[in-house]
């Protein structure tokens, strides 16, 4: 069996130790070699800083709450609809939508790295990528959720989705009570990022 030779060779040690200088050195080297265009970097940052984020996922959830046919289609075959909404792209090529119910609460993690549905939620927050979340939420999800202020009632099951492949999971939180008369646009404002990861619930109206 071939052995993984790269184990013995870590060129990164040649870079300056200070992280910001490491990034700068790599950017400088690659730019000087014509391999990256600094304007493209600005464009990538602007995309994930300002254009793509949890507001996309919130629109999907609010529409699922409001439109039973859309909801059914999203649960069975979401990709054509997501493409139509402009929510297809890198790290969101294969979405599966999982719905919270009175019986089951879903929560998403990537124990092996940091897989996350970028087109719907943007770049993952620091805690999602932390060792504590990655190591613990699979083993003791109820304790971890409590650290987010979410205490699940006994009798409600927890289903933790460990994103080990290129499938990306979006949680649809339960629609809060007292929202029956609300428009889709009003509902969007109740859907938090954490509620779509499963570490929170949708906000109550007026909260």
């Amino acid at each position: 069996m071939p052995h993984d030779h790269s184990d013995h060779d870590h060129p990164h040690a040649l870079l300056p130790p200070e992280p910001a200088l490491r990034v700068k050195a790599l950017e400088t080297i690659l730019t000087e070699k014509g391999l990256i265009d600094p304007a493209a970097l600005d464009e990538i940052i602007d995309t994930y800083q300002n254009k793509i984020g949890p507001q996309n996922g919130a629109r999907v959830v609010a529409k699922m709450w409001s439109d039973p046919a859309f909801r059914a289609a999203m649960l069975s075959d979401p990709m054509p609809l997501l493409e139509e909404m402009g929510f297809y792209g890198r790290q969101g090529e294969h979405m599966v939508i999982v719905e919270n119910t009175p019986e089951v609460h879903n929560v998403v993690v990537c124990t092996l790295c940091s897989c996350y549905p970028w087109p719907l939620l943007g770049i993952p927050p620091g805690w999602y990528k932390s060792d504590a979340y990655r190591s613990r939420v699979v083993r003791e999800p109820r304790k971890v959720l409590a650290e987010f202020g979410l205490d699940l009632p006994e009798g409600k099951s927890v289903r933790v989705w460990d994103s080990t492949a290129e499938i990306r999971y979006l949680v649809v939180p339960e629609r809060p009570e007292g929202t029956e008369g609300m428009s889709e646009e009003e509902l969007v404002a109740l859907v938090t990022r954490d509620s779509m990861i499963g570490t929170g619930l949708a906000q109550e109206p007026g909260a």
């Binding site: 927050p125 620091g126 805690w127």
Partner: peptide, 19 residues
Amino acid sequence: DMGGRFGDGAVTPGDDATF
């Protein structure tokens, strides 16, 4: 490969900036 590991302490939900 840290799923299930002990010893990492509490999660810090406040660490949530995009960058």
